Amino acid sequence: MDWDQFDMNPKVIAAVKKDLQRLTKLSSMDVQCLLKTVSGTLRKSCVLTALQLYQDKDNCMSQQQKLSLGCSVLDNLLRGGIPVVGITELAGESSAGKTQISLQLSLSVQYPYEYGGLESGAVYICTEDVFPNKRLQQLIDQQHKFRADVPLDVIQKIKFGNSIFIEHVADLDTFYNCITKRITLLLSRGMVRLVVIDSMAALFRGEFGAKDSVTKAKYLQTFGAKLHSLSSRYRTPILCINQVTDAVDETDVGQSNFGLLDKNVSPALGLTWSNQLLMRLMASRLTQSQQSPVGALQHIGSVLRTLRVVFAPHLPQSFCCYAVDLEGVKGVKVKSPL
């Protein structure tokens, strides 16, 4: 990018060039080259040649790669699963099924590539509740039923329980040390290819008051930048669980629900955190009165829930229903409303 192409007063550009030439004793050609190099670096030139794309073909392929949820209905909603590079947020109220989906992904990541996995383990960062070991063991024991699409001998070779690393953190400093040291070490050694944080909002509960919004935003930006760096460097999906808060006005309601549900809630942590995300999903638990309007088939013995795409660069705003049973999280096909 040439400096002359910037939307700036030509006098300002000329003065900068003149001062640089005077202070550095460089020729006008050298100064022009310097300015061009600096401006190109700062703008992170987003225009690539065909040769650059070919040389970075592994990175381009990872942008299209997905981690399957192990369920065809849920994968269809997400066009294959969650992206391998980037931060995906899963927000929702208590008992909406967020932890169930997280555990399912922690198992799915261990499957071979041909079955939607990444052939590696997962690290699960708990920030508030005790890790649900009993539920995880149930899911492991039921894998031969849940993943009927995978040959039994393949399932039996996977050491599910030995490939999930559990980290407990209770404050912001401990969390930062965890992702910069422990998680980085696991990723660099190829021991994990999925990072789950359950939950982000719990780290900030009670830490900041109304006057501390700037400090809170800096923490969120720092965490977001580090997580992005880890995801990009190691081609690792980052799944962040988030809580919800009551929407305070009609704008919040519209942005959080898009008219699909009757719940006036929005994800916690605000706009600063939203800007760190590649994709936002919301899980909701349906009441009896809500099941009929969406045309969902009754799933006997289970409470119906919905998983919605709030925003993503590659997906439209859409949703599907799912239920949680002993075997795991299963999408439920819906009828068209009358």
Rank of each mutant, 00 (worst) to 15 (best):
V248Y: 05
Y113C: 00
P132Q: 09
G121C: 03
R189D: 03
N242Y: 05
S188D: 09
G190N: 05
F175P: 01
N59H: 14
L326P: 08
T49P: 14
L307A: 08
C321W: 05
Q156L: 02
M200A: 03
L260H: 15
L307E: 06
T88W: 14
P293S: 08
A15S: 11
R235V: 13
P83F: 15
D19E: 15
P267N: 14
L67Q: 05
V310L: 11
M191Y: 12
Q255F: 10
C71I: 09
S188E: 08
N133Y: 12
C321R: 07
S232Q: 07
V154G: 02
K18L: 10
D249N: 01
S256P: 13
V150H: 00
A96G: 04
T37N: 04
I155G: 04
K211P: 00
L220T: 00
G206P: 01
K98Y: 01
K335N: 15
L269R: 04
K17F: 10
Q243S: 06
F165K: 04
V294Q: 01
D249T: 00
L261S: 13
V253L: 13
K36Y: 03
L172F: 02
R233G: 12
L69Q: 12
A210L: 05
Q298E: 09
L118Y: 00
V47Q: 08
C320H: 07
L136W: 03
P313I: 12
R285Y: 05
G190V: 02
R285T: 10
G92S: 09
H314P: 05
L307I: 09
E327G: 02
V334R: 13
Q143H: 11
P237K: 10
V324A: 05
S232T: 09
D262R: 12
A201K: 05
Q317T: 14
A96I: 02
M61H: 10
R189V: 02
L152F: 15
T127E: 02
L48P: 07
A210N: 03
L326I: 13
W3A: 06
H144V: 14
A14H: 06
S102E: 13
V334K: 13
R182G: 00
N257C: 13
